[in-house]
Design a protein around this nucleic acid. Sequence first.
DNA 1: TGTCATATCCTCCTCAAGGAGGAGTTTTAT
DNA 2: ATAAAACTCCTCCTTGAGGAGGATATGACA
Lengths: 234, 234
Amino acid sequence: MSPVRNPRPSKRTPSPQTWSNRTGKSSTDPQIRLLIADDHEVVRQGLAAMVTGQPDMRVVAEAPHGRLAVQLWQQHRPDVSLLDLRMPEMDGMGVLLEIRRQDASARAIMLTTFDCDEDIYRAVREGAKAYLLKDASRDELLACIRKVAAGETYFPPAIVAKLATRMSGGELTGRELEVLTLLAKGRSNKEIGGSLFISETTVKSHVKSLFAKLQVLSRTEAIAVATRRGLIRF
Amino acid sequence: MSPVRNPRPSKRTPSPQTWSNRTGKSSTDPQIRLLIADDHEVVRQGLAAMVTGQPDMRVVAEAPHGRLAVQLWQQHRPDVSLLDLRMPEMDGMGVLLEIRRQDASARAIMLTTFDCDEDIYRAVREGAKAYLLKDASRDELLACIRKVAAGETYFPPAIVAKLATRMSGGELTGRELEVLTLLAKGRSNKEIGGSLFISETTVKSHVKSLFAKLQVLSRTEAIAVATRRGLIRF
DNA sequence: TGTCATATCCTCCTCAAGGAGGAGTTTTAT
DNA sequence: ATAAAACTCCTCCTTGAGGAGGATATGACA
């Protein structure tokens, strides 16, 4: 509410010295101010509980869904936002996109239960400073928050490995993803063609390039791989 | 350790008046004593945070995996156990089975992120007193704990509906489940036969009855349905 | 004892799936 | 303007999937 906002004037990351200033900071804002966005109350409570007691950080806002998260971000301009990937109204990626549109230097940690290649890839591409699985320990979470607040990034080794995996094979086109989605629902090529208003032949050709990119030989395999990569959900 | 255990003699739910009594209860055990078992620290912290401040309940033990959960249960004999379904070492179902083997009147709430028909069904069959999704609100959780502590059961409407769905179609045999698992990995009938040391023909016949029970017409559909029901995981 | 479920195996048949190898059109980026 | 993707459609061919309709052996249960 107070008009005194965001000490960072949307500039680039200042020099390391300035950074030290931030950490042992001016009297006005001595703590890392956090926004928590997660639709699960248990998780919000858990995250909040994990930072309370830490003298150098403080939760300034909590949101049960993405839309509110953006709103609260605008109001509070937190130093670091903890965003759940899967949320109603607007998911974590949406929130990240929106807040980074308004302030390209905004810092966010993406939180998720699963380590889907696709999700990780997108989060990194959209400028997430860190990617944490919800099975992270308290220490890991705190370390991650401090790193991100300091302008660094944080990606667990397992995440980095996944990211590498994802790079192989190439990206699916929009149409291929549409076909894949229907294919995963058990639809035949003919049915898919009917749904997308294209011929069965065309579906086949999409399926073919799909298989090549996913490096599989059958639709059932495609479903398995695509699910593991997070391209489709059940 | 103390032989003074479980003041409720596995009787039926007492009258509402008794409820008031329980809340302002006898000096020996005035609170509902809880065990929390979940491999995610965030969730443990969250659950703990949600009950702290409640005068009528108290967390007496926390476990990051199933094996320790059983151990701690034996030590503390909590009134209610909150068990995560998916855990390392031993999952929630295993813990439930074990503690109910030692004390058939033990009360447990099964916690999970997903509402898979199969999981719900098994939990209910094995004597879980309640089934809660992790997106439950604080109020729902507290209400659930109090109900279970009072000897009642608690199943959200959505869960009951799922349970009904699960009942249709019939149960898969062990062999059928094996075939389904391999089928979902993208294996062909011949490959499945090779893995299970049976002929392709036999695989086909298993697949056929599989389809009938799942009420589907193709393997891709089977994967979709089986995933939704929680029969297979990726 | 007979029945029911499970698991195993068979044949014959049809059709959808998927590989090989094209080609034309539109969109997008350079 | 031009090249590169993406999207569309085609034929010919092989094989695997899945339906129909069986048979046999086992073990549990009444």
